[in-house]
Design a binder for these strands. Structure first.
Lengths: 149, 149
DNA sequence: CTACTTTAGACAGAGCAACTGACTAGTGTC
DNA sequence: GACACTAGTCAGTTGCTCTGTCTAAAGTAG
């Protein structure tokens, strides 16, 4: 399996996906090691989108690009495991705000540390300037590529 | 939902995932429009990894980071839909090579065109130099982040 | 060349994650 | 007050992925 083409061998999609997957795996492993092993990647992708003041189910679904039903299913599981809680939305009696609960809050520093460790490794490999450019470029890309925003 | 922090609001994982997802969606839509609407994202992720001379199931599974069983299941479906075919591996009677079949080959230019269109949009938004840097940086990142390689 | 170990892949069974469609209840508008 | 819209749930289905088990071929050691 020798490389015939230098950079173009992999399309951009794969090039974006590979480090994403690597990062996710690392964060997952770190959380599992810290005792947070009772949730799944799908649940984590929803959890990540919860804002500091709580977020409605419908908003979570839009942000994660899944249906309300799926989001509800995943939040049910997160709630059952103690990572999140549902509180009434004072501004709308139909809605409820999904908030990070005590157990969920415990995951945040662990996840952040794992991300920081991976980013540090990447910065070592790439150089700190290309690493900063990568982040900045991806942030700009989000402006046009994020259907939610 | 105002931005409080300029770039750091989203972690790198999300920043990688958002454009990946956007690109995948666009390619999917283009393929569906061209009549290739009878396959799923999971199948496409396996299909993408098939090399020009065919690839063994076990290799596909490793590359896509799924189990052999899952890869076999997805290849079954791709084979049934006419996108790939299985041929004996001349070097190992146990193994078979998964190859792109006629119908599968038809998807390649359509997918490539969709990717090129998205990349052109992104280059317009980012500037062509940052776009080239993005590709180069991601390629270098693959060197350490791709567990398969 | 025979016995053991490893590898390629298939089969069976189960759980999770996503979807569509139909529904209830609260909100907003005319 | 009637009607349209929105937040979320319930029911049912499909698809993806896993673990565990199995067969057959290949490689290795005696």
């Amino acid at each position: 399996m020798t490389e015939q083409v230098p950079n173009e061998q992999f399309n951009l999609g794969l090039l974006l996906f590979i480090p994403y997957r690597a990062l996710e795996d690392r964060v997952f492993a770190a959380l599992a090691k810290a005792g947070y092993d009772d949730f799944t990647p799908a649940q984590a992708r929803v959890f990540q989108r919860i804002g500091p003041d709580g977020t409605r189910l419908t908003e979570l679904a839009q942000a994660a690009q899944i249906t309300k039903q799926t989001a509800g299913f995943l939040v049910d599981q997160l709630e059952h495991a103690g990572y999140v809680e549902r509180t009434p939305d004072p501004t709308d009696a139909r809605a409820r705000l999904v908030r990070v609960a005590t157990r969920g809050a415990g995951t945040v520093p662990v996840g952040a540390a794992a991300i920081a460790a991976v980013e540090a490794e990447w910065a070592t490999h790439l150089g700190s300037k290309p690493m900063a450019q990568l982040r900045q470029t991806l942030s700009r890309l989000r402006e046009i590529a994020d259907p939610y925003r």
